[in-house]
Every structure is written in structure tokens, then in C-alpha cells.
Simulated scan of single mutants.
Amino acid sequence: NRTGEIFVANRTFERGVELSKKFKGQAIRFEELTNFLKEVDIIISSTGSSDFILRPEQVKMIMPNRRNRPLFFIDIAVPRDIDPKINRLNNSYVYDIDDLKGVVDENIGDRKAEAIKGERIVDEAVIRFREWYDSLDVVPTIVALRSKLEIIAKKEIEKTMQSNSVSGTDSQAIQRMTDSIINKFLHDPTLVLKGNGIHRDKSVYLDVARKLFRLDK
């Protein structure tokens, strides 16, 4: 968002002029401060004054000219420059060092919470990747086992079709039943072979499966 015009007030007008050049603003005399309150929306104050430089009566006087537009005071002086009683006026809001520190602490807390969430997401992604990567060496064996079962099933279905009068509807039903049997048969072996970290040496199970079902012939 763009800022509007910037006014700089300093007890030493010459110093105010120097500061205004840095911020591309306009220097005003310190005595004019109250009059310029109706022109701005945010006042940032940091002087070495031992007493308040802005009090409720000064702000109350200019609020009608502002048509009740909100006026924000950011007091970063120690001791305070702005009387906290101004907060009691309508549409006037005073923030001091403690308020700003609270905002900073809250933001830091939010960032830490988001960082923890981010770390958890990364950890979960790493675990999923490892499980996927570890399962890659299982895929060829599972595919070979399914392929062998499908070949056997296809031959047996063809024998049944040749020796019996089977309608097209019955043929489709037999095929669906066969596919279902194969899927159920492969379910447990697939879980065991994948293991997901259960087996210390997965290659032993893969070797047994390939020999047991003679997948390499």
C-alpha cells in the first residue's frame, strides 16, 4: 500500500528538515503538531521528553475536523510521549513498546507453530517416499505372479468354454469371478512381500516367492 504525505516534527526545526529529506516528507514546527493531527492517520513518536507531548484534550479538539476517521498513535519513546488516556477517546488507538513487543512475540509464536507443521509434513513425505521406494523391488515379482495366475486362469476358462455350452453372459460372469479370485489370492502375498519395514531382509521373501511359484521359468 502507498503512504500519503509524511510530516516530520522536531523540537529543532533544522533537524526536522534534515529528517524530512530522508523520508521525502515535509518538516513542520513542533508547535504545529496539534494542528497537523487532523491531516494524518498514523503518528509515530520517539522523543526524549520526560513528559507527554500529546494529551487527550489535544486529540479531542481535532477529531470533529477528521470526521471521526480513526487515528493511530505508535509510541516507541521511553518514557512515553503519548498519554495512554487517549485510548479512551472514540476512534483513537495508542500502541506502545509493550504492545508492539506482544505483536512481535505472537508473530514469532505463529511462525514457530507453522515451522513445526512444515517439519511434520516433510517427515510424512519422507516416510511415504521411503515406503514407495522400498516397494519398487517387489513390483516385478508381484506382476510376474499375477501374470502367471492370469495365464493359468485363461487356459482353464478356454477349456471350460470348449467342453460346455456357455452363453456370453455366463462367460463374462466366469471372467469376473476369476479376476476376483486372483485379486483375493494375491492380497496377502502382496502385503507380506511389501512388508513396509517389517522385514529386515526383503530379498529373502522375494527369492522364496519366485522359487515357490517358479516365476523365473
Results as ranks from 00 to 15, higher is better:
G109Y: 05
T190S: 04
V94F: 12
E119L: 05
G16R: 12
V40Y: 00
L33E: 09
F13H: 08
R88V: 00
T178R: 03
I74E: 00
R200H: 08
I42Y: 08
K21F: 00
Q175A: 07
F13S: 01
I181H: 02
M61T: 15
K194E: 06
E124W: 10
K101R: 14
E31H: 12
E156F: 10
L37G: 09
S203I: 08
V17T: 06
N87R: 11
R128H: 03
L206G: 11
I86V: 14
R200L: 01
E31G: 14
F30K: 08
E156C: 12
E119I: 06
N196W: 10
V126H: 09
N35W: 03
L186F: 05
A173G: 01
D75S: 04
A77P: 03
I74M: 07
F13A: 03
S165F: 07
I44W: 00
I152P: 07
G102S: 05
G197I: 00
E31K: 10
K21T: 02
T160L: 12
I42P: 15
A9G: 09
F7D: 01
I82D: 09
T12N: 13
L100V: 12
M161F: 04
G25I: 00
I157S: 12
R11D: 04
D179G: 11
R11A: 07
Q26E: 12
D179P: 04
L37Q: 10
D110W: 08
I157K: 15
G16Y: 12
P64S: 07
V8R: 02
G109W: 02
E14K: 14
S147Y: 10
H187V: 04
D105K: 15
K194T: 02
I181F: 05
S203F: 02
M63T: 08
Y93P: 06
D188S: 05
V126F: 12
D51W: 02
A9C: 04
D105Y: 13
A173C: 06
G197W: 01
L186A: 10
R67M: 08
G168C: 10
A173S: 14
L215N: 10
A144D: 12
I82K: 13
Q172T: 11
D123S: 15
